[in-house]
Simulated scan of single mutants.
Amino acid sequence: MASIKDIVFDSPHPASSARFWAQALDDYEIAPYDEEELTRLRSVGINDPEDDPTVLLVGTDGRLPRIFFQLVPENKRAKNRIHLDLSTTDAAAEVKRLCALGATVQAEREDWITMQDPDGNEFCVMRS
């Protein structure tokens, strides 16, 4: 049997995408850059983690799945075939907070609000 280790997002700028989702989600943070990782990045010509083509979000308690952002050259072209549903106790306040972080409202339904992250990836905020 398999289990989910990572959810992977394609991104034009992984560091920015990771920052948005680290702020959007409870209990997730950007994986720390230790000296070994910084050395690895420098070995491939990357001197600043802001330019890292692969940025990882980890659960603060070590839980899975991790959320991984990878650099891709092309822009998003179509509707997502998979998306995240976020739960909250106050959907209106959460939508407002997420918009302040750079998300946009795409559509409102009875039970959820469809939004887009700054890269255009759809996700939903559930009303209940």
Rank of each mutant, 00 (worst) to 15 (best):
V8P: 03
T114P: 00
P53V: 08
P49F: 06
E108F: 08
S87K: 12
L86I: 09
A103C: 06
K79R: 13
D52S: 08
P73G: 12
Q116S: 11
F9M: 05
P12R: 08
A15K: 14
F68R: 15
D111G: 08
A24W: 03
V105A: 08
D6S: 12
T104D: 09
D85C: 05
Q116H: 13
C124R: 01
S17D: 07
E29R: 15
D34W: 05
R63M: 07
I7F: 07
V8M: 15
P118N: 00
R19S: 10
F69S: 01
G62R: 02
L25I: 08
G59C: 06
I113T: 13
G59M: 02
V58A: 04
K5A: 11
L98G: 02
F69C: 01
L98E: 00
E50W: 08
D90A: 12
A91D: 06
T89I: 10
S128Y: 06
S11G: 08
P118Y: 00
R40I: 07
S43W: 04
T89V: 08
R127Y: 06
V125D: 06
F9S: 00
L38Y: 02
E108C: 12
R127C: 07
V44H: 14
I7G: 14
N75Y: 09
I4C: 04
A15P: 05
D52C: 10
R127D: 06
T104Y: 04
M1H: 11
P32G: 06
E110R: 04
E37D: 14
L71P: 00
T39R: 13
Q70D: 11
Q23I: 00
E74C: 10
A91K: 00
A107I: 07
S128A: 13
V72R: 12
G59N: 06
E108A: 05
R42I: 13
S3V: 11
G62N: 02
L71S: 09
T88L: 03
H13W: 14
S87G: 11
R66W: 07
N80F: 09
P73V: 05
A31L: 13
C124I: 01
Y33C: 15
R42A: 15
L57P: 02
I67P: 00
L57Y: 02
E94F: 05
K79W: 05
N80H: 01
V55D: 02
T60Y: 02
D27K: 03
I46D: 05
C99S: 13
K5V: 10
F68K: 15
H13M: 08
P49H: 05
E36I: 09
S128V: 03
R97I: 04
W112N: 07
D27L: 02
A91E: 08
A91H: 06
A18G: 11
K96L: 14
F9L: 03
I82D: 04
Y28Q: 05
P65A: 09
V105F: 07
A2Y: 14
A91Y: 07
T88D: 12
L41V: 04
L57T: 04
E94A: 08
P12E: 07
I113F: 03
I30L: 13
R42W: 00
Q116E: 11
Q23V: 02
Y33T: 12
W21C: 00
R19T: 14
Q116I: 10
L98M: 05
A91C: 10
P65L: 05
V125R: 01
D26K: 13
L25M: 14
G120Y: 05
F9D: 06
L71W: 12
I46W: 07
A103N: 07
A100E: 12
E37L: 13
